[in-house]
Write a protein that binds this DNA or RNA. Structure first.
Length: 428
RNA sequence: GUGGGCGUAGCUCAGUUGGUUAGAGCGCCAGGUUGUGGUCCUGGAGGCCGCGGGUUCGACCCCCGUCGCUCACCCCA
């Protein structure tokens, strides 16, 4: 007798996704893969973990993600790794390492890890999909990346998505702006929220991102980024906005939009699902990162990308009531019911599948009634019946499982005509 | 890291001032006169009532702890 074992559970903040829920994932991922293909992107796979520095350098040592949310571990060789908290840094590391020809257009889907207390729309392991383009700072690419996300959301069925956009300038004009902002904050510091009273000097941009009234009241009076861009950055930003509007994509300028990672330069943007409540409305975002390649040891290379949270997208689809659309239209064609007593199903199913039909069957030699029930619940279009009679005569009965009148919904055909007959029926 | 709610069959949940054999619906299985599924009828399987300790003659119910789920804050996808 072995000791009773308490069943294992998935770790805190992680989830198993089983059918039928997983069908939504399949549809969403397949849709995105198709979009990426149509926009000229190719799939890139990178490791789930990287040296900690890959993420620290890029997203900023003192960002919340780097400070307290990374899943860090040491391997047997005492190397320090982190499970990826987001997609971009790994992709740029791969770019720097392999130096592929540019423009490099990569798409990905990956789990992402953040050590935090789970709640609705926020998990320790969630999933992100996105694209990156390295090797050009053409504003047309900014437009293309944003358009891809925008059209992808629309294809999923989302209608209430808002695009917020901003420009953070390049290194120098941002530095000038930060100096101005600091000056402003210095005179108003006592009015900031508790947290930023302490940290405004070190990271004034974060104050813009603060959602507390205290900080908003202070910054709203102060200088705004878009008003202090250099000529080049202003021109770049204007061309992005103009490009979007030429495609009929409405963007809202949000001068406070700074986002959580330090690597962003120039264009930054965020997609907000209006159907969602509270802090988890952000379903995706991204921006330009023209210095990240250098920060990871590569040559100076412009880049831009966006990432979207799969769980958040699914929540938004649910909230808009479009989560149940079958994006892949995956239904079973056939279900084989075998009561021949001779395992006729094994060969028959193999033949039907080889002919291209999506086919399932029952097991364990159950009664016909039981098998028919399973056939019905499988959602298959037709049941293929092989009883002793059909088996002896070398025939099968094809029964329409969606017909309303049970009596006349079936026909019996010879083995050699099965594939042709079914093809005929299914294409009607 | 802080706080609220909840942990009873596979799922959704009841469970009377603590009283002896813990219930329902759905799902599952088997039948409703031996080849045919959506409805209906009958029967059945399936619960250390999250876990550990305490109070009590007696705990699913009360107390403490613990683990887990969930929601919110922070921040983010």
């Amino acid at each position: 007798m072995s000791e009773p074992v308490t069943p294992f559970q998935a770790p805190v903040g992680t989830h198993d996704v089983l059918g039928p829920e997983s069908a939504k994932w399949e549809g969403l991922i397949a849709t995105f893969a198709d979009f990426a293909y149509r926009y000229g992107f190719s799939l890139v796979l990178t490791p789930l973990f990287e040296e900690v520095g890959v993420f620290n350098r890029g997203i900023g040592e003192d960002s919340d993600v780097a400070k307290k949310e990374m899943y860090i571990f040491e391997d047997r060789g005492q190397r320090r790794f982190a499970l990826r908290p987001e997609g971009t840094a790994s992709l740029v590391r791969a770019f720097v390492q392999h130096q592929p020809k540019t423009p490099w257009k990569a798409w990905y889907i990956t789990p992402a890890f953040r050590y935090e207390r789970p709640q609705a729309g926020r998990y320790r392991q969630h999933h992100q999909l996105g694209v990156e383009v390295l090797g050009t700072d053409d504003p047309a690419v900014d437009v293309e990346v944003i358009a891809l996300a925008w059209r992808f959301y629309a294809a999923l069925g989302l209608t209430r998505v808002r695009l917020l956009i901003n420009s953070m300038g390049h290194e120098e004009c941002r530095a000038d702006y930060v100096a101005l902002l600091r000056e402003h904050l210095a005179s108003q510091a006592v009015w900031l929220c508790d947290e930023h009273q302490k940290s405004w000097w070190e990271n004034p941009l974060r104050v813009l991102d603060c959602k507390k009234d205290a900080c908003i009241n202070v910054t709203i009076e102060g200088p705004m980024l878009p008003d202090h861009l250099c000529d080049d950055c202003r021109d770049h930003f204007q061309r992005v906005v103009a490009g979007l509007s030429s495609l009929g994509i409405a963007s809202t300028l949000d001068p406070r939009l700074v986002r959580g990672f330090d690597y962003y330069t120039r264009t930054t943007f965020e997609f907000v699902a209006e159907a969602l409540e509270g802090a988890q409305k952000s379903i995706g975002g991204g921006g330009r990162y023209d210095r990240l390649s250098e920060q990871l040891g590569g040559k100076p290379t412009s880049g831009i990308g966006f990432g979207s949270g799969v769980e958040r997208l699914l929540l938004a689809l649910e909230a808009e009531g479009v989560a149940d659309r079958d994006l892949l239209n995956r239904t079973l064609d056939l279900f084989v019911v075998d009561t021949s007593g001779e395992d006729a199903a094994t060969a028959l199913v193999d033949r039907l599948r080889s002919a291209g039909f999506a086919t399932d069957r029952a097991y364990d030699r159950r009664s016909m009634k039981a098998q028919m029930k399973v056939a019905d619940k499988s959602g298959a279009r037709y049941a293929i019946l092989v009883g002793p009679q059909e088996y002896a005569a070398g025939e099968v009965t094809i029964r329409d499982l969606r017909s309303e009148n049970f009596g006349q919904a079936q026909q019996t055909v010879a083995q050699k005509d099965i594939v042709a007959t079914i093809s005929d029926l299914l294409t009607k």
